[in-house]
């Protein structure tokens, strides 16, 4: 009889790596996957930097600066664009294909589990966002960007809420639509919202009726919050509240509708 071997083995929890290590391993794995993938890198880093160079250095697009330096208005908007690209577009596409390919199901059967998978994803999204902020911020500073130091904490809060809201939107798309549809919808959303969402260009530059809607949508709220904080050093309460509300609403929708398979 060969019953000794299995019963002599350690109990379940001792055989898994510690929870923190599992989550960090997953975060590292997902971050590297983004950085290794050419298309993801293009969307998350290269497009924002090119957009910053184009809008910051040339004046072929009119930006309503309200008296501030052009680069000071453009850079916060590009930070918002970067968050949209990394947290929404890139994450939606990656998660959708992981879902289609059964990766989410397989990892859910390992000690990582679904909770660990989500935690790892959250850390990875934040790591990528931090890298985006560093790169875009450095390019902005090199182009003469002078953010108001008093607004930095509020801007960081806005970035955090923006990452949360757009990641929730990404998961909602990835967990409900087919992978090919997500690829199309996420890229289209990114382009459309970048142009008319009030994130890159101030909401005030949008047509009147749309401006009053756009400022309460996630891209407009993120753009206004970042500009409010970094251009004038204020705490933009209304846009931050809008972002927080969107995060809660989208998070609830993800819990309600996300499908793992």
């Amino acid at each position: 009889m060969t019953t000794a071997a299995p019963t002599a083995r350690a109990a379940g929890p001792d055989r898994a790596a510690p929870a923190g290590r599992r989550v960090l391993a997953q975060a590292r794995f997902e971050t590297l996957a983004v950085l290794r993938n050419g298309e993801q890198l293009l969307v998350t880093l290269i497009i924002p930097v090119v957009a910053l160079l184009a809008l910051g250095r040339s004046s072929f697009v009119d930006v309503g600066t309200g008296g501030a330096a052009r680069i000071d208005v453009v850079t916060p908007g590009i930070l918002g664009l970067a968050v949209m690209a990394g947290s929404m577009a890139s994450q939606a596409i990656a998660t959708a294909f992981d879902r289609r390919n059964g990766v989410l199901r397989l990892l859910a059967t390992t000690p990582l589990g679904r909770g660990g998978l989500l935690a790892g994803k959250a850390v990875a999204v934040l790591a990528v966002a931090a890298l985006q902020v560093l790169v875009v911020g450095a390019v902005g500073l090199a182009l003469g960007w002078r953010p108001d130091p008093a607004g930095v904490p509020a801007a960081l809060l806005a970035l955090l809420l923006g990452v949360a809201a757009f990641t929730a939107l990404a998961l909602l798309l990835a967990g409900t639509l087919r992978a090919e549809a997500v690829l199309a919808v996420a890229n289209l959303l990114l382009v459309v919202l970048a142009v008319v969402g009030g994130v890159v260009l101030p909401v005030a530059d949008l047509p009147g009726w749309w401006a009053s809607v756009a400022r309460w949508l996630p891209p407009g709220a993120l753009g206004e919050a970042l500009r409010g904080a970094l251009v004038s050093g204020t705490v933009p309460v209304a846009p931050l509240a809008a972002l927080a509300a969107w995060t809660l609403a989208l998070g609830w929708a993800v819990r309600r509708w996300f499908r793992w398979d």
């Binding site: 083995r9 379940g12 929890p13 390919n101 990766v103 397989l106 059967t109 390992t110 000690p111």
Partner: peptide, 15 residues
């Protein structure tokens, strides 16, 4: 989960 190994029909591998 730590005591069970799974091989899915569609493999479930990151691509």
């Amino acid at each position: 989960r730590p005591r069970v190994g799974v091989m899915l029909q569609d493999a479930g591998l990151p691509t």
